[in-house]
Design a binder for these strands. Structure first.
Length: 374
DNA sequence: CATCCGTGGCG
DNA sequence: TCGCCAAGGAT
């Protein structure tokens, strides 16, 4: 070490001891207490990758059935790469954050093209693929390939914030840098993948956001927040912007035993998914105005026939209002300016489309209103 | 750096 | 009913 060691680095030197008192006990705890999750029973890097993508911002219990179904349908990177995006989105429907599925699909194609169908084994290489950020690259590299690569997710950030009393709000640069530095120091050693999972598992089950189980914590004697009674104040809650309101009018256009469906543009909200053709309107728009918006989107002049009700849906950052408007038109379009594709489907056929949960609720409401008879 | 992108569970 | 948030990434 040079004498010119920065103050920031020098201040961490006493931590070497603490780091070593954390790693062993946490790993031992993990060996005893870890949950039996399906992706912990495989060594297939693709399957592990898939689990990591699905787990982004999504609870374990939600992911399990999706992971099993998706893997059965797309068992290999090659199978996924060859599948049409629409089928991939169908396998993802209901899971949310659909850009994950689009990126996964693109990444699979790149793995085939650039790496001969084998997922690269280092975080550095993984980072070059779509959908791989620092977290996912570290997770796949350490869990699937045994690289001593760090990761910081919401759980790890909380655990390390408490253990080392890391100050600052989520998103703060210095805070993030500090967390990654700690994660990097801690993961050095045997079984890096298990250690990273131990850190996350601990955050998910013991070092929880609310009412953490400190009396069951294997590393509480090393925990700064526990020592000083600061467990409830670390980490500080993130400040969230209030959700914005978005009102969409949905065209319910019956023809015989079918309704008109449209596929959304690839980017943005519900990108690439199917829907009852939608157009944004002012919250209090008259149905004639709403019909005009739909006419523009569909490229055909449609007439408003009846209001069929409203479905509300709360997203993290958006309050959705879906207004169902039964319409009719002079001809039945097969293409439209605002949409990727149009299709006339019976409810049974529509069930096989990749549709968001919000749209599913709206469709149910339209059918309950009797648009296709009983 | 801020904003956008879904969903379901839970108190 | 409501607010909070969970194994993040892209722009």
């Amino acid at each position: 070490m040079s004498k010119r060691t920065s103050p920031a680095l020098a201040s961490h030197v006493p931590e070497a001891q603490r780091l070593s008192t954390i790693r062993g006990p946490l790993l031992a705890w993990y060996d005893r207490e870890r949950r039996d999750l399906p992706w912990r029973r495989t060594r297939d890097a693709y399957a592990i990758w898939l689990s990591e993508v699905m787990l982004q911002q999504t609870q374990v219990s939600t992911v399990i059935p999706y992971w099993e179904r998706f893997l059965a349908r797309f068992p290999t990177v090659e199978a996924l790469a060859q599948a049409p995006l629409e089928e991939v989105l169908t396998g993802w429907k209901g899971l949310g954050y659909y850009s994950r599925a689009r990126n996964l699909h693109r990444a699979a194609q790149e793995v085939v093209a650039r790496f001969g169908g084998r997922l690269p084994s280092t975080a550095e290489e993984l980072l070059t693929l779509p959908g791989f950020g620092r977290y996912t690259a570290g997770a796949v590299a350490s869990i699937a390939f045994g690289e001593q690569a760090p990761l910081v997710d919401g759980n790890v950030a909380r655990v390390l914030s408490r253990l080392f009393e890391v100050e600052g709000l989520p998103g703060d640069r210095a805070r993030e840098a500090r967390l990654w530095e700690l994660a990097r120091a801690l993961v050095q050693g045997e079984r890096p993948g298990d250690f990273n999972q131990a850190l996350m598992e601990h955050g998910a089950t013991v070092c929880r956001p609310e009412s953490p189980l400190c009396l069951l914590c294997p590393v509480r004697t090393a925990c700064g927040a526990f020592k000083r009674g600061r467990v409830d104040e670390l980490p500080p809650a993130k400040v969230r912007a209030p959700p914005k309101r978005l009102t969409l009018v949905l065209a319910v256009w019956p023809h015989e035993d079918a309704l008109l469906f449209a596929r959304r543009a690839e980017k943005g909200l519900f990108g690439g998914l199917w829907e009852l053709p939608a157009a944004e309107v002012e919250p209090e728009a008259e149905h004639t105005v709403a019909a005009e918006s739909l006419s523009k989107a569909l490229g055909v002049q449609v007439a408003p026939e009846a209001e069929l009700g409203t479905v509300r849906r709360q997203l993290t950052h958006r309050a959705l209002t879906l207004r169902l408007l039964r319409v009719s038109g002079p001809r039945r379009p097969s293409r439209a300016p605002a949409f990727h594709e149009l299709r006339w489907c019976t409810p049974d056929q529509a069930a096989g489309l990749g549709m968001s949960t919000a749209m599913l609720r709206a469709l149910e409401a339209a059918l309950a209103a009797g648009v296709l008879g009983r």
